[in-house]
Design a protein around this nucleic acid. Structure first.
Lengths: 179, 179
DNA sequence: CCAACCATGTAAGTTGTTACATGATTAA
DNA sequence: TTAATCATGTAACAACTTACATGGTTGG
């Protein structure tokens, strides 16, 4: 998958649901896609400009001055289909929790315990955030059409978090000396 | 966590187990740490040079000409302990499988099905690789001391992969029309 | 003797982040 | 009126990857 193609996929994907401003695209990515995707602020506008040059999106004047609403073109839909058919780019893993666990012998027991507590807290918060996202998306009109796909990503999050919680419990039992 | 600190943590961590050449550090990271950590080739040597300037590692002549064996110093051990006590840097998620799933309505059914098949295949391969890593590490002399920590990272991998396989099964059932 | 592996390093390029800069609108 | 939110963009910087470059050693 070529350069910039990853960001384009996410942006064209959002616009395939409906037209939006750059700001709204950013919102959508950081809220509903946020638990499995990230685009930094400074990437969205340059990428949109490129997509417009390539005729994959078009702009219509927005509700406010200085704002423009982006719409996907039919060429854009074709490109999106092609991008989605390509194999996902695997991300290089950098899991700080497991790195620390691996070298856990060099850690103070209390630091290890605190890290596991943090993982548990964050996992539970994540479960709550999934409930909030579910409330958000079911309110969307496009939910009727896209609902099952959106739900599938939430389920992935839930299953992952449950696995994490199971790991924390197991790891506490093995690595922390009960006093 | 400051600049470069992440790579330093991994490298100092490997050297805390025992002395190694740059090449061996790279091998260790890509084999036993590979399922949760990644360092690219071009990062290890510059980072080692920096660590030596800071007195955190020292070099002894290696077995071959042009090779040097790195050893962690006591200052290096102290730094490692400090680095491990810091909160892990969260990685920005970029999960291509879930991105595609979210926009699955724009995908051909067969492409979605193929992607899920790939996820399943890769998950099973990963389970096999964990068995291979387990065989590797139990053979290490340092396993006696570090075993439980190393095993904990493998368990994390296994639990994650199991969650992935459960997700694939569930998602096939919901999203693919049985014909 | 030749391929695979051990071993070290640099340089160019890409990608992605953060901070800066600006200003309108809306709700409290 | 003032803080939050909507809205767009750029420029500098940091991080990371890939390709290049080199050459010794070991096993088949």
């Amino acid at each position: 998958m070529a350069r910039q193609a990853q960001s384009s996929t996410a942006i064209l994907g959002v616009l395939s649901i409906g037209p939006a401003t750059g700001y709204e695209i950013r919102q959508a990515i950081s809220t509903v896609l946020g638990h499995f995707w990230h685009e930094s602020f400074g990437q969205i506008y340059p990428c949109l400009a490129e997509l417009e040059d390539d005729g994959l999106v078009r702009t219509t004047p927005g509700a406010r001055p200085r704002s423009s609403r982006f719409e996907i073109t039919s060429a854009g839909r074709a490109r999106l289909r092609a991008l989605l058919a390509e194999a996902p780019v695997p991300q290089h893993p950098r899991n700080g929790v497991l790195l620390r666990t691996f070298f856990g012998d060099s850690m103070a027991q209390e630091d290890l315990a605190a890290m596991l507590d943090d993982v548990e807290t964050q996992s539970r918060q994540r479960l709550d955030s999934y409930a909030a996202i579910r409330a958000d998306i079911t309110a969307e009109p496009a939910y009727a059409e896209h609902g099952p796909f959106w739900e599938a990503t939430l389920r992935a999050g839930e299953l992952t978090v449950e696995a994490q919680l199971a790991w924390v419990a197991e790891t506490r039992a093995t690595l922390l000396l009960s006093r």
